[in-house]
Design a protein around this nucleic acid. Structure first.
Lengths: 226, 226
DNA sequence: GAAAGTATGTCGGCCAACTGACATTTCCGG
DNA sequence: CCGGAAATGTCAGTTGGCCGACATACTTTC
């Protein structure tokens, strides 16, 4: 199983465990632009995203935002602060209408105690996320902006790509600003790079969706050409 | 407890748990320059550093190395791959003569099953490390090299600083290259920045050790001046 | 204690990418 | 279906920090 598929914890849980989990928590609905929680808030709950899309991002004194984690249906978020204590350091910002399962710290520890298989899954998810974060760091340090953007697109397509004939169709919409916040660059540079990649034939853009011409892309993203 | 103190898992474990853990694993000795494991190796063991210093670093195709984690006595490493499966993606590179406790995956899961308090600790450590990684990402994206170096020094001093009168004495030796690999820059730039900081009176350097004039430093590192 | 290896200090040239500024296009709520 | 808001496209000016190259200092090893 590729790294990118491991984080859908709800899907990987056994049926009984999932039922138990769902019956424990309470569902909440959010619409676009709202926050599930904000930096500074206490942080006594864990969340499971059932539907929609949430970005976990850290604001900085300069006003710039960094997106640390893009959360899709089936994934878990908000665990770090619960396990570790202390308030939230990140925002959980809702990108599109979403449904979220909310569990208190004690509900969740109880669940883990009673369901050791799920405990193991949680450790896997945490490990997987640590690897993803490490990968981002390595990218930031080693690669130029163009390569970072290509690798991001490939990473996303591993989990959210739909094969359409020869190409891969990324079925999520991202603004250039969001891409910039994920790879650590500016909106203008993203715009420029994307049209450059389009010109080169690596991908095509249609009403805010990205189509990847996969073979060329993989070869090109293996490293900045030098 | 500050973030930087949470990772000394051996110290935080109860006496009985620690005894149990130590009796389970086997001790190994390494000298400077050796590897506890290398990227590509299978990855079926967890390690606890009893003495010495180990850097967890990820090599890249360009030859550059990124230090993701500097491991000190009492800390745990190599868990991510064990929990998550798959081979090592990082090197564990021994910086100075070290002693390491080695446990197999099954020994470790057994231990966690029998010692729920320690399980909780492990989750805390993982969460803490995720936060640290996130912090590094935010630094890389937002701050210039000078600020990144200052923040690194402050982070290290929180865990390894010894108060000597007015100043804080960092009792670990780091080469400029290692600092560069941690903040994502080049050796030359580190040399330049350190002497700039020295000129400004933020810190002083004596035979490869760093002394911090704390008050000025904290103020300055809160953000790049603009 | 000499030689080899490793770490530090310093410099000029150069380019990727940021900044700010603006025009245009697309989206979305009423 | 219209008007404001948000997203995209483009450009010239500026610069932080990389690269390469070299000299000096420290520190192991035999």
């Amino acid at each position: 199983m590729p790294l990118d598929q491991q984080t859908d914890i709800l899907a990987r849980m056994s049926g009984e465990d999932r039922e138990a989990l769902l019956s424990l928590g309470t569902m909440q609905r959010f619409s676009k632009g709202e926050f599930v929680f904000r930096a500074g808030a206490p942080g006594k709950h864990v969340y499971f995203l059932r539907k929609g899309r949430v970005k976990i991002c850290q604001p900085s004194h300069t006003g710039k935002e960094v997106i640390l984690w893009f959360c899709f249906a089936g994934e878990m978020f908000g665990l770090a602060e619960v396990a570790q204590g202390g308030g939230r350091v990140v925002h959980a910002h809702v990108c599109e209408a979403s449904e979220v399962l909310k569990l208190s710290q004690s509900q969740f520890s109880g669940f883990l105690r009673d369901h050791p298989d799920s405990l193991h899954l949680v450790m896997q998810v945490l490990s997987c996320r640590m690897r993803t974060l490490s990968e981002v760091i390595v990218n930031l340090v080693n690669d130029d902006v163009e390569t970072r953007i290509m690798k991001l697109i490939l990473r996303l397509s591993a989990r959210h790509g739909v094969h359409v004939g020869q190409d891969i169709h990324l079925d999520i919409t991202l603004t250039h600003q969001e891409i910039a916040d994920m790879v650590g660059t500016t909106r203008q540079t993203v715009t420029g790079m994307l049209s450059k990649l389009k010109r080169r034939g690596f991908l095509s853009l249609e009403n805010r969706r990205i189509y990847i011409e996969s073979p060329e892309m993989h070869a090109a993203a293996s490293g900045p050409d030098h």
